[in-house]
Amino acid sequence: MIKAKQKPIAEIKALLAPYRNILILGCGTCVTISFAGGEKEVGLLASSLRIASAMDPGGQKIFSEQTVQRQCEWEFIDAVAEQINQADAVLSLACGIGVQALAERYPDKVILPGVNTTFLGMAVEHGVLVERCRACGDCILGLTGGVCPIARCAKNLLNGPCGGSQRGKCEVNPETDCAWQLIYDRLGKLGQLDRLSSLMTYKDWSKDYDGGPRKIVREDIKL
């Protein structure tokens, strides 16, 4: 799922400085699960901002709170149109998709991001989120034993490891497992080490962001 992290409070305060009536809008799906923008986080951020506002001699702000199921769906964001229209600005705690969906749906409204959308990943334990996918558009996990070198190798190497792999860890961050060590170990367990004897050819990066914003059209199900 999409993982995000709340922006520092100082940055949020600066973003909100010009506005008085502010709607803090949470999203009930990915950012909720990543403890960044669900109903609970909306409440915590609103309370923090009220404390800040109460200490601000420059004038009081009014914060209202709302959470929709998914900010990346027109229907869900339309359900809170009234609150959005009443606000001077909306602080969205959704990922960048939700922020843009709001901006597109409410062209006259100031929509501000409250979180940094960080990566596609999972919780390996409660409170620890890790990146697992870069959405490169051309999945090679079938060749790499189910470990992604694009998302998990700092150099996105297709034929690793590099010389910076030290005792299974990455030279960029000694806490990070070397993706190619993991690939080697997995292929070994699967009895597919021979895969490593052939070079992987270059990757078609046009399917990644390098080809510009991507789009999927399913002609079979379009209305």
Binding site: I33, F35, G38, E39, K40
Partner: peptide, 11 residues
């Protein structure tokens, strides 16, 4: 104990 209620991100 209430721990789940406290941690639940969706309230």
């Amino acid at each position: 104990c209430g721990l789940c209620a406290t941690e639940c991100p969706a309230k």
